[in-house]
């Protein structure tokens, strides 16, 4: 069961809020301090990607982020609702980069110079990443080791 679920409108301003919430829960879950910057950046990248995709395809739909700590790891799943027929790989891991220039320019409107960079950064930050493109959106799941399962501090 997810510890925290958050939905937010596809507005760039909300990405910072999502980063802050994820980092706070990661800290509480016992993710090492040295990894918190990685969590913050990776969650930000996933949410930024989702916001850009929604702004192009479905600006009225919210983005969902789930933060779980019940598997001995801190797990974050960011799910968008934007059609992603521009994704080359039907399913797979972080190697499923967006590769069609025209489509990528739409999805990554703000960084047309470097499409797919956000997912590349996530892949470089989290040791466990799964990018699952589907017909109704992309799900990015990533996790980090947590020292205190279920967020209960060790005594």
């Amino acid at each position: 069961m997810a510890t925290v679920e958050l939905t937010f409108s596809a507005l760039p301003a909300h990405v910072r809020t999502a980063r802050l919430v994820a980092t706070a829960i990661a800290r509480r879950t016992g993710v090492a301090e040295a990894l918190l910057d990685e969590v913050r950046l990776a969650v930000g990248e996933a949410c930024s990607r989702a916001v850009e995709a929604h702004r192009v395809h479905c600006p009225g739909e919210p983005i969902r982020i789930e933060l779980r700590d019940d598997s001995g790891r801190f797990e974050v799943t960011v799910t968008d609702s934007a059609p992603n027929d521009d994704l080359q790989s039907p399913s797979g891991t972080a190697n499923g980069f967006i590769s069609t220039p025209a489509a990528a320019e739409g999805v990554f409107g703000i960084v047309p110079e470097m499409p797919g960079l956000g997912i590349a950064v996530i892949a470089g930050l989290a040791d466990d990443v799964e990018v699952s493109p589907g017909p109704t959106g992309v799900r990015i799941r990533m996790s980090w080791p947590a020292a205190t399962p279920n967020g209960v501090p060790a005594h």
Binding site: R40, G44, M114, L117
Partner: peptide
């Protein structure tokens, strides 16, 4: 304090 790939893209765009 914080830089993500969006910021990197802006810097690369500036470089170009």
């Amino acid at each position: 304090d914080f830089l993500d790939s969006t910021g990197l893209g802006v810097l690369v765009g500036g470089l170009k």
